[in-house]
Design a protein around this nucleic acid. Structure first.
Lengths: 235, 235
DNA sequence: CGATCTTTTGAAAGCTTTCAATCCAAGTGG
DNA sequence: CCACTTGGATTGAAAGCTTTCAAAAGATCG
């Protein structure tokens, strides 16, 4: 997958627009729009499927899972959203998915009207939104490849690699990975069971690629081999 | 999944903007932008991953698969695009995926500059684009649920149901499904093998839910039961 | 330090894949 | 018009990977 980005490099990000105001406000041209803030405890819902979309949310702190359920309770987590990420920017009237905090979370709540005002008055804002959605679509399609065509070990390796690369982007040590989610949440993200996730952490550990100082802390010893495991290069 | 759409009902679609000109042109306000047209034979590539994005394409005729490959050749088809659909509207500089025709295809080629001009000058166009991308993201997340959590039979039933619903939207008989793709392409879309796809067509046939007049033609006898099969309601 | 929840590990079962063969439809040439 | 060829689709049997069921090991908390 590409990480270079010819188009957005020169385009301001969504965050650029949303972070430009004082706390609780977003600057739009020369005026300001008031935004609320909301705090969630661990495992609280920000919204559930079917709710009318009233706000777009930007994560300020914590991690949120966006997931979908089957009638019998099977769950598929579509994405984990981290600080800076937008939730609900995909506006189709009602939320099609559920959003639940993995830990304590703070979000900024941006009313749809404010979004519309930004789109209408702020040159470059809709471009920034389009970029954000395009990137999210590309990442989701990548996840389709994981779910549809990768083995359990490849999925787990891909998952760890993804977190490592986020660290890299954020300027954090890419070999020290913190997992804010439980094995159950990892399993529901990768289309596996918790037992299979656990077994494959162990396999990667025994292969010397990672170690597990704690169940929520992963140390990567060999990024290249982790990458090889992620797309089946090493058996 | 929601099919109602509070937001876009009142918003013009992307097609509204792209179809408003004479053939080969798109009306932008009072001016026109020239667009090209391209014809593809069966199983030709419109673009491959890594190509610089120069155009956005709108399918005029035929069906195109958007897919991704692993180094060892495993393939995951992300989506099948039908007439009216936009390909490459997710602009992130370079194409992250491959696009290949399933049959003879005609596309309209819209230069990126024309897209930018539409975004800048045509009120409502970026909103239409945002809606299109949002819908695509929601559908892709739905597909994650299929790939990650559904059994082979549920996947096949879901796939048929999706085609049936497209027919419904298009005003075509929702019980007569034409499959422009091979078993191999269905398998790579559902994360299965061709044998498993075939076996599960047979299962649905033996259950009396569908019949197969030909391998590319499906008749649905009981939409409700097909729906039940699609999310595991019937075993 | 016991109680509880999560994670890890083990063994058997199950579903999908793999390997292989047959069937079928469409196109070719005698 | 009918073998013959060819590529896709279907069906069968065995193998393999993940899940399920079960239990042990760890971690957290009052």
């Amino acid at each position: 997958m590409l990480t270079t980005n010819l188009n957005t490099a020169s385009t301001p990000s969504v965050a650029h627009f949303l972070n430009s105001g004082t706390p609780g406000q977003i600057k739009i041209g020369h005026s300001f729009t008031t935004t609320g803030e909301k705090a969630l405890e661990s495992h609280e819902h920000l919204f559930v499927a079917g709710d009318a979309q009233s706000h777009v949310y930007q994560i300020l702190e914590g991690v949120i899972s966006v997931y979908e359920l089957l009638p019998d309770g099977r769950r598929q987590i579509a994405t984990f959203c981290y600080p800076g990420d937008l939730i609900g920017a995909d506006r189709i009237g009602r939320f099609a998915h559920n959003a639940e905090s993995l830990c304590k979370v703070r979000v900024r709540c941006i009313p749809l009207k404010a979004m519309d005002r930004l789109i209408a008055t702020e040159p470059g804002f809709s471009q920034a939104l389009l970029n954000a959605l395009s990137t999210e679509l590309a990442e989701t399609r990548d996840q389709l490849l994981s779910l549809g065509r990768k083995s359990a070990r490849e999925k787990v390796a891909t998952f760890l690699l993804r977190i490592s690369r986020r660290n890299e982007r954020e300027g954090v040590d890419e070999t020290q990975l913190h997992l804010p989610m439980t094995r159950s949440e990892i399993a529901d993200y990768l289309g596996l069971t918790i037992e299979t996730v656990s077994r494959n952490f162990t396999k990667l550990k025994k292969a010397g690629v990672i170690s597990l100082p704690s169940s929520s802390q992963v140390e990567v010893h060999d990024l290249d081999r982790l990458e090889a495991f992620a797309d089946g290069g090493e058996h």
